[in-house]
């Protein structure tokens, strides 16, 4: 009875914050089927970890931790991830593109070309940054120091600026 009540509470919580899971899945997996698979795996892991959630941190901080632990440290097939650092392929052929026409624009193309060039850790940091998380929140989720977060974000910004220059020059 108690477990059932807990499950209902959990499902309500997830239903309110499911965008978070979807965003993590979208950041790491390039096609819809893999994203859905990752979504489901994160959901199961959130449920398994739910008894340990004591409300000491924000619910979204806890959810990001579990979600990122699932996609980064889990024993999953990594071949379907958004590839990175590959100069031997035509990047535009492998982009994760939105399937709806109204969001298909140049900025989103650039977004995915950017994601592709980042390491898995950088993806996590920049996603949290784009989600307007504070440096303290990012540090808590990632287990890094606040200084390390700042350095990492600056480094990613530089990396992206370099990429945009390359794109502008037609590379």
């Amino acid at each position: 009875m108690e477990e059932r009540r807990q499950k209902e509470k959990f499902l309500k919580l997830i239903s309110e914050h499911q965008d978070l899971i979807r965003k993590v899945a979208a950041m790491y997996y390039k096609n819809k089927a893999d994203q859905e698979d990752a979504f489901q795996e994160i959901l199961v892991n959130l449920w398994k970890a739910y008894p340990t959630f004591r409300g000491e941190s924000k619910i979204t901080t806890w959810m990001y931790r579990v979600a990122l632990n699932t996609v980064i440290s889990g024993f999953r097939k990594a071949s379907n991830r958004v590839h990175r650092n590959r100069s031997d392929v035509n990047i535009s052929d492998e982009l994760v593109k939105p399937e709806r026409e109204n969001v298909s624009n140049e900025d989103i193309d650039v977004l995915y070309q950017s994601i592709e060039r980042l390491t898995d850790i950088e993806k996590a940091v920049i996603m949290l940054y784009m989600e307007e998380k504070t440096y303290d929140d990012i540090a808590e989720i990632m287990g890094m120091t606040r200084t390390n977060v700042g350095v990492k974000i600056n480094r990613i910004k530089k990396k992206l600026q370099k990429l945009y220059k390359e794109l502008a020059n037609g590379y």
Binding site: A26, V103, L111
Partner: peptide
């Protein structure tokens, strides 16, 4: 870039909220 990310993730929400 943040704007593009928001636009894409908003679209994801519309496509697949459970």
């Amino acid at each position: 870039l943040k704007g593009a990310w928001k636009s894409y993730t908003d679209d994801l929400r519309e496509q697949g909220s459970k």
